[in-house]
Design a protein around this nucleic acid. Structure first.
Lengths: 151, 151
DNA sequence: TATTAGTCCTATCAAATTAGTCAGATATGA
DNA sequence: TCATATCTGACTAATTTGATAGGACTAATA
């Protein structure tokens, strides 16, 4: 897995949407200015997220984006896969499986690569956007900082 | 972490050297033909491995490469770092740490990325080339295959 | 109905990375 | 001195990455 800027920005945008979930939508401009992300680049990423059914959008004046599911039901792994592809360090889990079967001399190597991908998946597929928001909140609280809300 | 062909080929070359460790050296040609890797490309990778002190080489006729340490003492993590860079999904562990400190709103996100890098490191920095060879041998044995040795 | 504020869509672009290749210099054993 | 090695550096084609530009479409509202 390599997390590119696309994936990182996508996650930050979704996290921003998670914070206002159920209360309001956020326009592209709002997200990009508050998260300090290049607007037009973010726009592309939002399209990807939309096609993956992670966000919904409303066109026209007062339009904007919102999560298509509640933050508890969107995992980080899901987002990264949508934007940056498979979590595995090479190819994807199935391809690695094939390699393990194919050449005995390399089996051990690809087994360990599969272990890595499974470890990554174990973490990212069990962390939701809500989990992350809460953790950020927790950290901020423990540091005595405040005002991280969008609303 | 993204494992490129460089890293994959480098690992396979080192594994080949691990199998004959203490008995003989392998020339570039031998490695590339037995492992079916592009010779000149592998040559570049061997140079990187040499500069990282993972292999030693002997020039001239009957020259070739050998591991500079025993296979038990070379970890997969070390090899990947030498060839493909840090294990972290973005930047490196220290940079992620900085991000965690810097913006509270994002702390949770970067914490999880650090978790991922630590999980990867936990696996790869504790698996040696010897471990992998043994595992391959084990798998081959359980399948009733034989003849994986170079010598 | 014109304006405004949005999303949607496609094309383009520069820089970096990836996966190689090529030509030759240098070392060494026979 | 010849054959066989490693070493060195430059080059290249294709892909990916991180954007930007320009406009089409859509919806609320003055």
């Amino acid at each position: 897995m390599k997390l590119t800027k696309r994936g990182e920005y996508g996650l930050r945008a979704l996290l921003a949407l998670a914070m206002v979930h159920g209360q309001r939508t956020l326009s592209l401009r709002e997200i990009s200015s508050k998260e300090n992300l290049p607007t037009k680049f973010l726009e592309q990423i939002m399209m990807v997220l939309k096609r993956s059914n992670l966000v919904e959008s409303v066109k026209g004046k007062h339009g904007g984006y919102s999560l298509s599911r509640s933050p508890e039901k969107i995992t980080v792994g899901e987002v990264i896969r949508a934007v940056d592809g498979p979590l595995a360090p090479i190819a994807n889990a199935r391809e690695i499986q094939k390699q393990i079967q194919k050449v005995d001399r390399h089996a051990g190597l690809y087994v360990i690569l599969l272990d890595v991908r499974n470890a990554i998946s174990e973490i990212l597929d069990h962390k939701s956007l809500a989990d992350i928001c809460n953790q950020s909140l927790e950290i901020a609280r423990s540091k005595g900082t405040e005002q991280m809300y969008y609303i």
